[in-house]
């Protein structure tokens, strides 16, 4: 039995009178690809926002367990940057790249929390700082190569084609060396070829043992990638299981999937 990396229990989020998340339980084990699916407005992005510290959840617990230890770290109440430091990194559904920075620089920002040069190092450019800068650039470039973005390295992020921007979001998140990578609709707006390439890319990232939690609407992609699937609707979990189980689950078919499964 693999060890859990992320354990969420009873997560609830209210916006004024609206309950966007209703006592949600979810877990991801090491090396797994888990999908979170559900109709638009189900609360999937809100779930990401809550576990990454962007929103403060109304109730519930979030624990992260690094694979090499058995100590649970509570992520509740941490600021977004602290959550990232602990090992959750995410992409955004509505792309949020640093438009006026180059592709390489975007990834270099991801290295920020794993490096430490500060005012003194910046001004005096000490040997340590120079070494660190070099390693930032090299690591970032290596990630770009792995994600097939190396050709764009020196372009401004907003000049990239759409599919490449989505991949750059992933590259930037990977640069933070996450224990768990959170992808919010990475295939949104992609054409079929790009989606197939993305499928391969995510498998490739996963081969390195990277655990991934994926929000996605493209059922083919979800079925092909996931080890397990969680289905939610109106902020509640309505089903969970392997792709085969979800495909057969009458509640899911009724509430959400319908004919899309065969499409």
């Amino acid at each position: 039995m693999k060890q859990s990396i992320l354990q969420v229990t009873g997560l609830t989020m209210d916006f004024g009178g609206i309950r966007a998340l209703n006592s949600l339980d979810l877990d991801v084990k090491s090396g797994e690809i888990v999908a979170l699916i559900g109709p638009n407005g189900a609360g999937k992005t809100t779930f990401f926002n809550c576990i990454t510290g962007i929103y403060t959840p109304t109730a519930g617990d979030i624990f992260l367990t690094p694979p090499d230890s058995s100590k649970k770290i509570s992520l509740k109440g941490l600021k977004p940057n602290q959550v990232t430091e602990k090992g959750l990194a995410r992409t955004f559904q509505n792309i949020r790249l640093f438009a006026k920075m180059t592709v390489l620089e975007n990834v270099m920002i991801g290295r920020h929390c794993r490096t430490k040069a500060f005012v003194f190092g910046a001004i005096f450019r000490t040997a340590a700082t120079r070494k660190e800068e070099k390693s930032i650039i090299e690591t970032s470039y290596a990630i770009l190569e792995k994600l097939g973005l190396a050709e764009f390295a020196n372009e401004f992020a907003d000049n990239l084609p759409y599919g490449a921007q989505r991949r750059l979001e992933i590259a930037r998140a990977l640069a933070t060396e996450p224990l768990l990578l959170l992808l919010d609709e990475p295939a949104a707006g992609m054409n079929p070829q790009e989606t197939i390439a993305l499928d391969k890319l995510i498998k490739k990232i996963s081969l390195d043992g990277q655990a991934i939690l994926l929000i996605e609407h493209d059922m083919q992609l979800v079925m092909s990638l996931s080890d397990r699937i969680f289905v939610m609707d109106y902020g509640k979990k309505i089903a969970q299981g392997t792709p085969a189980e979800i495909r057969e689950n009458p509640v899911v078919i009724k509430a959400y999937l319908g004919e899309e499964v065969d499409a």
């Binding site: 977004p80 990194a89 949020r96 006026k100 920075m101 991801g110 040069a117 500060f118 933070t176």
Partner: peptide
Amino acid sequence: SRLGRAWIALREDEIACQAMGI
């Protein structure tokens, strides 16, 4: 520097910046 990059990123998008660990 690393700090300067963080400033510029912060100017561009605060939320993305925080999500990247700054």
